[in-house]
Each structure stands twice: as structure tokens, then as C-alpha cells.
Write a protein that binds this DNA or RNA. Structure first.
Lengths: 246, 246
DNA sequence: TGTACATCAGTGAACGCGCGTTCACTGATGTAC
DNA sequence: TGTACATCAGTGAACGCGCGTTCACTGATGTAC
């Protein structure tokens, strides 16, 4: 590394800028620790400042308000999850659609179990009094579902998806629902037909339902010892429900 | 009504006891309103006292601590949901298993949409620092799943359930998972075989997954206009996944 | 029926706490010439 | 290379707020005889 690389767009030129970026990273890291320990509702700028080793008002140099810190944490968590999912999916061959689907599901679950508080922030009860700014969270917040429909649409285009899973084939898609699905197909540039898309939405919510039950402790402490196997079974059933061949 | 009915076990004899019971009811009612407005983490005994028209310390005559109020609200919500589900299921003929299943799902969803904050307390992120006392919440907290497996087991015993939904039939149940399922079958006195029971668990979590996505706003504001139809479609697919005939 | 006592609901003051946010300030670090 | 000025990170005090919980107390309501 020399200092003769002035063209790098994203690089931070001055030491001050670098120090500033590092401090913001520290704030986000500490914020995540607090999230994990006390939950989003109890997230406090004063406590973050204490852990940063700085007086409480100093944090306001970096973060406009408690709200903004929550947004930073939200975006950070969405991106960490999105990176984990992309890496897991990308590790499977492009035409192994079932493998990619299972990799996606396992990646979401593993991340959720490792970061339960961040998962709760993204997929649990809304934080009272906090409304995420759509323009900053929509992109990162849709990475998982985008990856999921990419797999299903890819499988469909490759002829590797049943016209509709055997369960879904004979469940009517009403006209109103079909209109929603047509919009989605248009916006995302998809080729999958209605029954597949409708089942795909259910597969999506079901995946998160199974993970939320586990992360939020809904199963109770004793009901399931074999949680990995339970989830693997669920993934297998969901893959078939989506129409993926095995 | 005369005062000549001294034998009624549950009746509250003295006026003081009745007044006390009414005040506790008021506290729970006000607590629920605060839950709905500000979320569980922000639930405050002082605020409840204010709305009750009483000085803050007076609430401690009725409720031991903030923790205990949360427990009261939890049990109250579980029972309200359980009552709604039982009523909806009971309104269908005993042998209309698919109808009962769909009634159960619709009842949970309707209650959740009407009481989003209570739903969040029961099925959303855990409240930081609060651990529900198992001996008071386990009974009410399992009413929905008990009702659900009663439907599936009843359908199975009546010969109205496929050996396993077409999707689930060829997904392996590993030995470890089978052990968990055997325990559950024993504890609940069920007859359904492993593949059906395993799919039933997925149907259970999927139902709540779909409802949570809707209640917690995960679909985004615009993606689905036809939410009733979307949920009806999901219910239909889930019924087939459970093995119910139509 | 009347009196003496016990029970209990509710009061008001106080404890110690943590929070978000603002503001005028001190120094250190960077920049322009 | 050296000086004058601008920028910025961090300080410390303060604002007003709400919280959970305890405690000694006042009266009103109930009970025993």
C-alpha cells in the first residue's frame, strides 16, 4: 500500500475521515452488543457513549438521534444477513436450485440463532415509536426475498420447477390475489405463474415462521431436542411445496 | 339474584372482594390499552395508575410488580385468543376437519389483526428482562396448538387424513426427530404417525409465520392489497400440507 | 342494635435511577497561503 | 518551511422527564361480640 491511490472512490482520504468512519463502526458494534443484551426498546445512546469511553453528548457528533442509531443497526443487520445468505447460496452450483434453496434457509436460520437480538429487530415485533425510513431500509431489507425468488424463478425458467407443487395446484388463486401477483411479477421481472408465486410467498413466510418459533422460544424448552433435524425436515417439505424437485 | 347462594365456589362473597376483583380487571384492561399504544417494553405501572385515577403506589395493593402485570396481560391475552379459537372451531361440525382447521387459522388471524400488540406480546420478540413464569402461562399458552393437533388427530382417527400430504410423504424423518415426535405423541395421547405429525408442526409454525408477517408489516405497505385472499390461499395450501382432504 | 377493633384501599412524599438532547467551551488536528 | 485561521472531536454542566418501589399515614369499610 502506497499513498499513491487517490482515485479510489470509496476510500477515505484524510485521517480524520478514517477516524470518523471507525468511530461510527464502533458505535454500531457497541449498539449491536446492547441490542443483544437488552433489546431494541432499551437501546440507549448514553449507554453506548459509556461503552465507547466518551461523554454522552459526544455521540451526537456521529449520530443524529437514537432513532438514527436504530436505523444504522437495522441496515447493518439486514446487510449482514443478506451477505450470509448470498455467500451460502453462491457456494452451490447455479443449477442446483434445491441445494440453493436449502442453503438459503439454513443461512437465515444460522444467522438468526447466532444473532437473536438482531433477528428480533428485523423480524420480531415492531419497536414502539420507531418507524424505519423506507428509503434507507427497503433495499437491504428485501435481499433475502429477492434471493429466494431468484432461485424459484431460475428453477422455473430452467424447467426444474413443477407447474405447481402437488398441494398448491388445486387451491384457487382469486382474481384480486392474481392482480397482486401480477404486479409483483412485473416489478421483479419474473416468469413464474400464479400458483407457483403464491406458494412461494407461503414458503417465504413459513421459513421465517419456523425460524421465529425457534429463536423466540415458542416451542417451549423441552418439546424438541432435535432442532437441526426438525428444521431440515421443514426445509425439505418447503422445497417440495415450492415445487422444487429433489 | 338473591344473596342466598353461598355455595358458589367461584363467586366473590363480600363487596370488598368484588370491588377488588373489579379493580384488577380495570388494571388489566388499562394495561392492555397501554400495550396497544406503546408496546410491552414501555408498559409502566405509573402510567396505569394515572389512567386508573389513583396514585402510583396504590397499584401495588393489587399487583406485586411490573413483572406480574406483564404476566397477567400474557395470560389474559392467551385466554382471549384461546376462547376465540375454541368458539370458531366449535361452530363447525365435529367431522368437518378441514372447516375446523380453516376456522382456527382465520380466528387466530382475526384476533391478531384486532389486537396486534397483544399478539406481539405472545408471538413476537421476547420482552427483554422478562421471563414468563411457566406454571402460570403454559396452560393458556398451549391452547391453540392443542386445538390444532386435536383437529389433525381427530381427522386421522376418522380416516380423513392422508397418510401424509403428498409433499411430506417422501421427506425423511430422522431417528432423533422421531424420538421427539414419539414423546409428543405420548404426552398428548395422539395417534398420528410421524410424517403427519412432523408436517403438522410445520403447518403450525407456518400459520403463525404468515400471520406475523402481516401483523408486523413484513410484506411492506404495497405488495399485497388482497390480504384476505392471500391468507385464504395460504390456509388452503396448509390444509393440504397437513393432509386434510377438501 | 351498638360499640371496639381489625382490615384494607388509597395518599403523598421520598429514594435513586437512567434517559434524550442542548449548549457554550476547550484543545487538538488539519488547511491555505 | 512557517504562520494564521478554520474545522472538528470531545467535555461538562444542565434541562426536564418518567420510571419502579418503599413507607408511614389517614380514613373508610367490615367483623366480632
Amino acid at each position: 500500500m502506497t499513498d499513491a491511490a487517490p482515485a479510489a472512490e470509496a476510500a477515505l482520504r484524510t485521517p480524520r475521515e478514517r477516524a470518523r468512519a471507525r468511530t461510527i463502526e464502533d458505535i454500531v458494534r457497541i449498539g449491536r452488543e446492547h441490542l443483544a443484551l437488552h433489546g431494541a426498546a432499551a437501546l440507549s445512546l448514553r449507554a453506548v457513549a459509556r461503552d465507547l469511553g466518551v461523554v454522552s453528548s459526544a455521540v451526537y457528533r456521529y449520530v443524529e438521534s437514537r432513532e438514527e442509531l436504530l436505523t444504522l443497526l437495522l441496515v447493518d443487520a439486514y446487510n449482514e444477513l443478506g451477505d450470509a445468505v448470498d455467500a451460502a447460496v453462491g457456494a452451490r452450483p447455479e443449477n442446483d436450485f434445491t441445494g440453493r434453496f436449502e442453503a438459503l434457509g439454513a443461512a437465515v436460520r444460522n444467522w438468526a440463532l447466532a444473532q437473536p437480538a438482531s433477528y428480533a429487530l428485523l423480524f420480531g415485533s415492531p419497536v414502539p415509536g420507531y418507524q424505519a425510513p423506507a428509503e434507507r431500509t427497503t433495499g437491504p431489507g428485501t435481499r433475502v426475498v429477492v434471493a429466494l425468488v431468484a432461485i424459484l424463478d431460475g428453477a422455473w425458467r430452467a424447467g426444474n420447477l413443477s407447474e405447481a407443487g402437488p398441494h398448491a395446484a388445486d387451491v384457487d388463486v382469486t382474481a384480486l390475489l392474481a392482480a397482486d401477483l401480477a404486479n409483483i411479477r412485473g416489478e421483479m421481472g419474473l416468469a413464474v405463474p400464479d400458483p407457483v408465486l403464491a406458494s412461494g410467498v407461503l414458503v417465504w413466510t413459513s421459513l421465517f415462521g419456523a425460524i421465529s418459533f425457534e429463536v423466540f422460544g415458542q416451542y417451549g424448552p423441552d418439546a424438541f431436542v432435535a432442532r437441526d433435524e426438525l428444521f431440515a425436515h421443514h426445509l425439505g417439505v418447503l422445497a417440495r411445496l415450492a415445487g422444487l424437485r429433489t
